[in-house]
């Protein structure tokens, strides 16, 4: 009987390594830790300025990605399934949908709860978070609205570097994002056609996705 069951259920689930996504849904954020994290970053900015804070944010996001296990998949479909299930490191912290095989849409910013707790309990989000993003946009890559985007985008990039599909590395690129207060940041006009082509969506579809989601990005084979 047991043998028959095994035959009827071949290795369909061989790439499902974790039940982590199920567990994570049960874990609620604690506002204290989130608000304290922002103040911790502000304290660093007080001492080291926007450039120093930017370096810290990029460093912490990179070291977070490096502390997570490397991944390899045989096919893009297997990888995409892991991304959809939140089992790949690159999507472990966010809820996503995948309109095409390369386009990923984050439905809710994983930092939005922290931001709303901050604004509710402390007041206006400190200006330094936007100043550092401006520094990042002008010196690293133009895609951030605030410090949360720097952490998130750097993490995705560092995480993608640790994933191989069919022996080739995965690449990440940011297209657009919308902050919790509604500010929008879209990739430079000259980059957009190439990015949208890789994503397999039009500019109109991009704007439609941004209306009620928070982040639009792509993953592709390097």
């Amino acid at each position: 009987m047991a043998d028959e069951q095994i035959k009827e259920n071949p290795v369909e689930r061989k790439h499902v390594y974790s039940r982590g996504a199920e567990h994570k849904e049960l874990i609620e954020d604690n506002p204290f830790v989130d608000v304290a994290a922002f103040l911790f970053l502000e304290d660093i900015a007080d001492k080291q300025g926007a450039a120093g804070m930017n370096n810290y944010l990029m460093s912490l996001a990179t070291s977070l990605a490096k502390s997570m296990p490397e991944e390899k998949y045989d096919t893009w479909e297997q990888f995409l399934e892991a991304v959809r299930r939140g089992e790949s490191t690159i999507s472990t912290f966010e809820n996503i949908i995948t309109p095409t095989e390369n386009c990923i849409v984050t439905t809710k910013c994983p930092f939005s709860r922290a931001w709303s707790e901050y604004t509710r309990r402390i007041g206006h989000f400190s200006k330094i978070h936007y100043d550092v993003a401006e520094y990042y946009n002008s010196t690293v890559k133009p895609g951030a609205i605030d410090t949360m985007c720097i952490i998130h985008q750097t993490f995705r990039s560092a995480s993608a570097e640790r994933i191989k599909v069919g022996g080739r590395p995965v690449r990440y690129a940011q297209i657009a994002c919308v902050s919790p207060e509604g500010a929008k940041k879209i990739a430079p006009e000259e980059w957009l056609p190439i990015l949208l082509e890789k994503a397999g969506i039009t500019k109109t579809e991009m704007n439609m996705a941004l209306r009620n989601n928070t982040c639009l990005w792509i993953l592709y084979k390097g």
Partner: peptide, 13 residues
């Protein structure tokens, strides 16, 4: 995510 990143920062710092 911010809290997990923060713990990573604590190690770094």
């Amino acid at each position: 995510m911010l809290d997990v990143a923060l713990v990573s920062l604590i190690q770094d710092m």
